[in-house]
Write a protein that binds this DNA or RNA. Structure first.
Lengths: 205, 205
DNA sequence: GTCTATACGCAGATAGAC
DNA sequence: GTCTATCTGCGTATAGAC
């Protein structure tokens, strides 16, 4: 997940990730990270000079993860429908494996949009994903008679329907599932098919 | 927006809302709120005992706002399609008027899910909205031949497509609009119709 | 590399004059 | 009610022994 040399450094990165995911940069405490890693607070500063540096390491590694790796999609000569279907499968699976990822990313990006976005360009995380999206949009326009704007809305509809349930989880769980985690997980497990159905019907399929 | 007695108290509440919206509870500073209100830090503690109390006042007032007031929808004897359409209109308009609302709510709810949710029950904010949603779901099941699960997914799809663009704004703006606020606002202005079209086609309309 | 002890600044909160 | 001045604790960061 996060490549590094020393064993301790890995423990720190893992611990920092957990705490930053839960609390965000502002809410996180170096002491909590140290406890989580089972080491001393001073060691954090030995490996990473400051809290900010440690956070940057976590964010950079995490942010790229937020975009699904769909390199295979680009080259495959499948139909648009199959590609969209595969994208939704891959993305929902990614989010199920990392349910806290979306909240972390949007929280920190909204906290400091500029700093984060320059970091985004530097790490060119979604370079691939942007190409994929562009492909999707172009194909939707030609094959489904959509305007450019409509194609973009459709893409963002997909992203919205995939991502939002993970961001709004506590709220949705309270409103619709009586705080029952099992019922919510079952709901999530149905998402792939629902999103496909919704998008496909919009596209006239 | 926030009712109260004294003029100063109102200024504080307005200022606190702005700062808490921007920075969240953890990131906000009492000094910044005081500056924003054009008063002294000590006055904040005079009117509200602590930062937490001040935050609670803001959150309680804001949270109820997050749910659209659709009392009229309940009683009107319009078709389901018209009701859904009206709901989307009202909700998107609400979010356009308060674009920072969704991020604030989900950030704070994810920070402290239990505290917030008990507060939610106490203030019974979405009592009306839950009834509306239940109505929508029931009608979708009977009129559109949906299962209970499918109806729920459809509701959450609507919410996702309405809310997510506001939460993901900085990211979407970077990825799809080259940081151009005007283009993003134009995108938002198209949302009502797009969401209706998407949902209606799913429902076979 | 890892620890304990400590320095230092900042932010929340209070005291008390006016 | 509103201010200035101050207290206090906490959290980041460093010093220095081992």
């Amino acid at each position: 997940m996060v490549e590094s040399n020393s064993e301790t450094e890995n423990r720190i990165l893992e611990a920092a990730k957990m705490v930053f995911f839960r609390k965000g940069l502002d809410g996180a405490r170096m002491q909590e990270i140290a406890d989580e890693a089972g080491i001393n607070k001073a060691l954090l500063h030995y490996y990473f000079r400051s809290k900010d540096k440690l956070f940057e390491a976590i964010f950079a590694a995490t942010f790229t993860q937020f975009f699904p790796k769909v390199d295979q999609l680009t080259l495959s000569n499948r139909t648009l429908k199959e590609k969209l279907s595969e994208f939704i499968d891959i993305y929902i699976q990614l989010l199920r494996d990392n349910p806290q990822l979306p909240m972390f990313v949007v929280r920190e990006i909204n906290r400091d949009p500029e700093a984060i976005l320059t970091l985004m360009q530097r790490n060119l995380p979604g370079k691939n994903i942007l190409e994929i999206f562009h492909q999707f949009a172009a194909q939707m326009q030609s094959e489904c008679n959509l305007t450019q704007a409509e194609a973009l809305h459709t893409l963002i509809n997909i992203i919205s329907m995939c991502v939002f349930p993970f961001i709004g989880r506590p709220l949705l769980k309270q409103m619709f599932f009586e705080q029952d985690n099992n019922r919510f997980d079952e709901f999530i497990s149905q998402r792939k098919d629902i999103i496909k159905k919704t998008i496909f019907s919009t596209l006239g399929w």
